[in-house]
């Protein structure tokens, strides 16, 4: 499903060159739940951004669903992200001026040929699957951290993507809420067959996934 071949990422300024990722090779088969761990600044988020087409590798090839995506033009990349990928972030990234239902609808807004009625139906369905349908007319600031992350999960799954990329989804939550969110992700992976790549600092959460990949200073620890 996801294949990274000799992927490197180097940030260059006039005076400094920083290697964020160094020759990463990674194969994530369809339906796998992979977690990535490592100390801060080791390149976990960079790796996730490259898989999520939010950033480009300096070198190497990225293949997702059989397509060499790093060669895509900007518009095609946006389209691909919208169709194939779902994102969950540590700080939720909900738009404070939109109600929960409107936040969940967002990915469908950028998808052609989805009527307003259909968007509404799919969003309600996604909210129901994370147990927050009754909060759909609330604003994000009226929700707890766990609820916000569940809304973010609903937003990630509303477009039925094949891959979910989660960047420390439990990082801002206490253990109870963190476990709730983890349960939802595990369920999505198990029931829906969604491929999930999760960056985490939490060893316990990582242990619940199929496979753990460790990074250190931009390199993969074998």
């Amino acid at each position: 499903m996801i294949s990274l071949d000799q992927v490197s990422k180097v940030y260059r300024t006039k005076t400094i060159e920083t290697t964020a990722l160094n020759n990463i090779n990674l194969e994530v088969p369809k339906g796998e739940f992979l977690s990535i761990m490592g100390p801060s600044g080791c390149g976990k988020s960079t790796l996730l951004n490259i898989i999520g087409l939010l950033d480009e590798p300096s070198d190497g090839a990225v293949t997702i669903a059989g397509k060499q995506v790093q060669k895509y033009a900007s518009k095609a990349t946006s389209h691909f992200r919208n169709e194939k990928l779902g994102f969950i972030f540590q700080s939720f990234h909900l738009i404070p001026d939109l109600k929960v239902i409107d936040n969940v609808e967002l990915p469908l807004l950028y998808r052609k040929h989805v009527s307003a009625k259909e968007r509404r139906r799919l969003s309600e369905e996604a909210l129901e699957s994370v147990g927050l349908k009754n909060r759909m007319n609330h604003f994000p600031n009226q929700l707890s951290g766990g609820q916000k992350q569940r809304v973010a999960i609903a937003r990630a799954i509303v477009g039925k993507p094949e891959i979910i990329l989660a960047d420390e989804p439990t990082g801002n939550l206490d253990s109870v809420m963190g476990n709730e969110v983890m349960d939802i992700l595990l369920n999505l992976n198990k029931e829906g067959g969604t491929t999930i790549v999760m960056v985490t600092h939490d060893e316990n959460m990582a242990r619940r996934t199929h496979r753990l990949m460790r990074l250190y200073d931009g390199s993969q620890i074998k």
């Binding site: 999520g52 946006s78 169709e83």
Partner: peptide, 14 residues
């Protein structure tokens, strides 16, 4: 928000 929208599929023109 702009970053989020781009991640969710908004193009630059969008």
């Amino acid at each position: 928000e702009i970053g989020l929208r781009r991640a969710l599929g908004a193009s630059r023109v969008g």
